[in-house]
Amino acid sequence: MFTGSIVAIVTPFRNGKVDERALGDLIEFQIVNGTAGIVPCGTTGESATLSHEEHDRVVALTVEVVKRRVPVIAGTGSNSTDEAIALTKHAKQAGADGALLITPYYNKPTQEGLFRHYKAVAEAVDLPLVLYNIPGRTGVNLLPVTVSRLTACSNIVGIKEGSGSVQQTSDIVQMCGERITVLSGDDPLTLPIMALGGKGVITVTANLLPKDMSAMAAAALANRWDEARRLHYKLSPLFAALFLETNPIPVKEALGLMGKIDPELRLPLCPLLPDNRDRLTRVLKDYGLI
């Protein structure tokens, strides 16, 4: 259902508020350049520091601007199951095509708790759901056997796999087969994950280079591996630069240097260190982005 290069879009701020005009312009930039889908209010969208009102507005605005041209997969995860259900219900009401749900963070549920959490959301909201596993941020790893159990829920259609383990991704593909779509949650691992049977990526890099990320994913889906590999190596310096510090600090700085947004962040995130800003600037110049 959801394949190709899907952008985890930033939430631009100006003077402490969501910059709706800039967000609309970013969405248009994505669609014109071939992005296969938009994810608002993910980690890259600083969902953790959006108020509930802002979160709902960003999802609704994204749906309004996209106008069904590509799927909108709203970030609706929480470490409270009731809150995740409420956010997912709003996404459905707003017209989103799906929801992305991060594993509950900080409270460290067991695998049984993770299973019950996702099952509860799936039963409460009739909307296609994408699981999101990123243990480096959440402190809990959604194991392949639990993913396999969750495929019994007909509206759990995908997983954004960000464990950083190619073996874990391989196990998910092997255990689940066509019952779930595996998407990379780590830009540098997109190509190897797609070689194992993944169908795309939910990507940070596409904020800057939607055309190249889309081309790489499309080439891999079409088994044009030489082309996909060439694009992977072309993009590799940018993959590294965008994670010099915690995402989305570098990508917002890059978009600011490109003149697309004010690179404003919300505490506890703060601007790039000067040395890292210099390194990022060099990569952007080498790529011809600035």
Rank of each mutant, 00 (worst) to 15 (best):
V72L: 08
P237C: 00
G16D: 08
E264M: 11
I202V: 15
R137S: 12
S170E: 11
E178D: 15
G200E: 10
D56P: 02
P128A: 06
G136A: 14
T3V: 11
F239Q: 00
P268W: 14
E20F: 13
H52Y: 00
C176A: 15
S78Q: 03
P188Y: 01
Y106L: 10
G164M: 06
G185Y: 14
L150R: 07
L280K: 04
I134C: 14
L114E: 11
Y233N: 02
K67S: 04
E46H: 14
A91K: 08
V204M: 08
D19R: 08
A254F: 02
V10R: 05
T81K: 13
T190I: 03
I180L: 13
A99I: 12
E54K: 03
S47T: 12
V18R: 11
E112V: 14
V182D: 06
A220G: 03
G4V: 05
A120T: 11
R179V: 07
L273Y: 12
I202F: 12
S5E: 04
T81I: 09
T203V: 06
L143Y: 11
V70H: 03
N133H: 03
I85F: 09
F2N: 04
T3F: 01
V7C: 10
I193A: 05
L101F: 12
A120D: 15
G259T: 10
